[in-house]
Design a protein around this nucleic acid. Structure first.
Length: 732
DNA sequence: GACCTGCTGCGGCTTG
């Protein structure tokens, strides 16, 4: 009987044999016929270390082995580091087939790119931004070099869904099919992804025009075991005028030191500031105990050199290493085997928690997750948020959703992405030299990814782009790049669609340690923590945007800027369920599994007692001090919407952690105002956004007409329908 | 209290 394996190229089979693999994994076997068919898209969705990369490349390389001129496979990755990893992994397979592998991104030497330009062949590994630059500057070459391409494969596809880069990526894929005149027989797209919540929705996200069918290949054998613990910590609150104690963080660090030393672990600390502070404390502890330091920070503002040293140390695995990190170590960069994952403070989302947990454990050992959660000691002036122990209960809700409901946040695919649409209008115009408005509309909105956009809005966008000098219309009716547009498209920063704040570089001697945002003022003589070490600022060169530092003792990490992240409706509803059931444990059969330590249990009991004392099982509105508090137990979009409605009605309202504080008001008047709003009809997201003074969030928002700016902002920040439903159900 | 990602072409310099 001929198996799927026998359909692989003999040289590929020989390569598999040489790896010493006893057999291909089930996922890899089932991908073979799907990939070899070449008449469909394929979604390969599986957990970490399931062998997704090989599941695609073994059959794909077999299919394109005979192509001698031009690329056979184009691989797209969101990270340069991932391209470097895959290059290392694919080199020997490429050699076995006499097929070159070409990494192509901003750090690759010009000489290497020139070589690939003269004789393109084999596998191209590239970022969306580098693809953008090739389409704009070298579409003629691309037409030749890409003509034999049999597959376009996208790694970490889940990281693109619903994002700006995801919209750009889909548009790039469309533009490639267009350049190659392949609308009739499009290039098959293959998505490699972590396990996804709504698998049936992915094909449409991979190819909005549905011109090819999509086959899904998944790995259902993943019955990974999991060990979870939540540990509580109490922060003693200092009297007025006293120095803050940070006693809880010291206890957290002492536990990390005890749990992690001697092995390899990941500690996710949520912010760069906390990452730095914990890393420095742990290094100090190593010094105090006279043992070598094995704790290092890893985050996006750290110089690449420092990050790569740590990644290589983790990957090698010969020295015990614990990385204190942000989401930089969440995606698939190869870091070898990790004993356990520690999460300090609640994660931002269940989906990110899942991704982080997947970083520990392998087939033979369970995933181990510990959550270390700090709450402030209660005093006479403690806020409702502290009294309810919302941090602790949110952590518990996220664990329950992840484990017993197997739920996590779906990607938000309802955004308008006007900033990215504007970028793609400029990019296509730059690529073609001149283009008609109807061609843009057809390629971007009708057959392309911007399907939420209405024709009237598209027209007003083009008009406004003309008024801003981004586009100019010729007498023939064709659009070309205008004077202001030239400035944008001729600069190398054009290729990325996302925003980056201005930054200072931190330098010691001749070495760059990393960057800090320009709005975080540092002063000469100030002591700071950076890269897990302590420094003194010696000099600041404002024009060159450089801060010089030298080694010292003491100091605090700098402040980094960043936008908020929103909590989903389902998470807040699960928190309410935990309070109401008076039980945070996980049901397994007839048993209830407790995952909290004594301190966490005590904090939960405190929160629940206060929940009952406020009568929150029966009401969403409470009075405390001078204020009225509204607790809708809904996600941040609904909370933002209700806060905005109350502000419009003249109340002093603000929200934190899902709790709305209405200043100097009584419950009855807040309820009455909301009833009136419900009766007279709620304003739209658009109208609410019009009240917000600063709506610039995305890279090209400043070039949008006011109406689109408000529409895009409204879709991002508010949920009027969800709020209306909540008000109908909860106002008697 | 708060995350991450990416980037061209060329002039001018040093070094073998």
């Amino acid at each position: 009987m001929s198996s799927a394996y026998d359909r692989l190229d003999p040289r590929v089979r020989k390569w598999v044999y040489k790896q010493g693999w006893p057999d291909l994994r089930p996922l890899q076997k089932s991908a073979i016929p799907a990939i070899l068919a070449r008449d469909r898209d394929v979604l390969i969705s599986a957990g970490t270390a399931a062998g997704k990369t090989e599941a695609f490349f073994l059959p794909a390389c077999s299919a394109v082995a005979d192509i001698t001129s031009g690329f056979g496979i184009v691989y797209i990755s969101p990270l340069k580091a991932l391209i470097n990893d895959q290059y290392r992994r694919l080199e020997s397979l490429g050699e076995a087939l006499d097929m070159p592998v070409t990494p192509w991104h901003g750090d690759i030497l010009q000489s290497k790119k020139k070589k690939a330009r003269t004789s393109p062949s084999g596998i191209l590994l590239i970022t969306p931004e580098s693809l953008e630059s090739l389409l704009i500057n070298s579409s003629g070459w691309l037409k030749q070099a890409f003509s034999p391409v049999a597959y376009i494969v996208i790694d970490e596809f889940h990281a693109f869904i619903g994002t700006e880069r995801g919209m750009q990526l889909l548009s790039l894929l469309n533009r490639i099919d267009h350049v190659l005149s392949r609308h009739a027989n499009p290039i098959p797209r293959v998505a490699l992804s972590a396990t996804l919540g709504e698998l049936d929705k992915v094909p449409e996200l991979l190819r909005p025009d549905k011109l090819l069918p999509c086959e899904t290949v998944t790995d259902d054998s993943s019955k990974a075991t999991l060990q979870v613990q939540v540990k509580g910590y109490m922060e003693s609150v200092s009297e007025e005028g006293e120095e803050p104690q940070n006693s809880a963080e010291k206890h957290v660090c002492a536990d990390i030191f005890r749990l992690c030393r001697g092995d390899s672990h990941l500690v996710f600390a949520n912010s760069r500031r906390r990452t730095e502070s914990i890393a420095a404390t742990l290094s100090d502890m190593c010094e105090e105990h006279i043992v070598p330091n094995e704790f290092f920070p890893h985050h996006g503002s750290l110089a690449r050199e420092l990050r790569e040293t740590l990644e290589a140390r983790l990957q090698k695995g010969n020295l015990p290493t614990t990385a204190i990190c942000t989401m930089t170590l969440e995606l698939g960069i190869d870091i070898g085997k990790v004993q356990s994952v520690i999460q300090v403070t609640p994660p931002h989302s269940v989906s990110s928690l899942r991704q982080r947990m997947g970083r520990s454990g392998r087939r033979d050992s369970p995933s181990v997750l510990r959550m270390l959660i700090t709450e402030d000691e209660l005093t006479a002036t403690s806020s409702i948020v502290d009294q309810l122990r919302l941090q602790m209960v949110q952590s518990m809700a996220m664990i329950r959703l992840m484990i017993s409901q197997r739920w996590f946040e779906p990607a938000d695919t309802c955004q308008m992405h006007y900033s990215t649409l504007l970028h793609q209008i400029l990019a296509i115009t730059a690529q073609w030299g001149g283009v008609r408005a109807d061609q843009l509309w057809s390629q971007l909105c009708q057959t392309g990814p911007f399907r939420n956009v209405e024709l009237t809005d598209f027209k007003s966008l083009l008009k406004h782009m003309g008024a801003c000098g981004l586009l100019t219309q010729l007498a023939s009716g064709e659009m070309v790049i205008g004077a202001e547009g030239e400035k944008l498209t001729n600069h190398y920063t054009f290729y990325a669609v996302f925003n980056t704040p201005e930054e200072f570089r931190i330098v010691t001697g001749s070495r760059t340690l990393g960057t800090v945002p320009i709005d975080s003022p540092l002063l000469p003589e100030q002591h700071i923590i950076f890269g897990g070490r302590r420094w003194k600022v010696t000099e600041i060169e404002v024009e060159k945007k450089v801060i010089y530092v030298e080694a010292t003792k003491g100091g605090q990490p700098p402040k980094f800027s960043g936008g908020g992240m929103s909590v989903h409706d389902v998470v807040r509803q699960e928190m309410l369920a935990i309070y109401r059931e008076n039980d945070y444990r996980i049901a397994v059969g007839n048993q209830r599994v407790d995952y909290a330590d004594a301190a966490a249990r005590n904090l939960f009991a405190e929160g629940r007692d206060n929940f009952q004392r406020f009568n929150l099982q029966n009401t969403h509105f409470i009075a405390s001090g001078q204020h009225c508090y509204v607790l809708p137990w809904m996600g941040d979009k609904v909370v933002n919407t209700m806060t905005a409605l109350l502000l419009r009605s003249g109340f002093k309202a603000n929200s934190y952690a899902g709790v709305i504080e209405v200043g100097d008001s009584i419950v009855a008047s807040v309820q009455q105002a909301l009833k009136e709003i419900l009766l007279s009809g709620l304003p739209s997201e658009f109208e609410l956004a019009a009240d917000v003074p600063d709506k610039y969030l995305d890279k090209y928002d400043e070039y949008l007409p006011e109406s689109l700016l408000a529409k895009g902002y409204g879709a991002k920040a508010f949920d009027v329908e969800g709020t209306r439903t909540w008000l109908q159900e909860n106002l008697q």
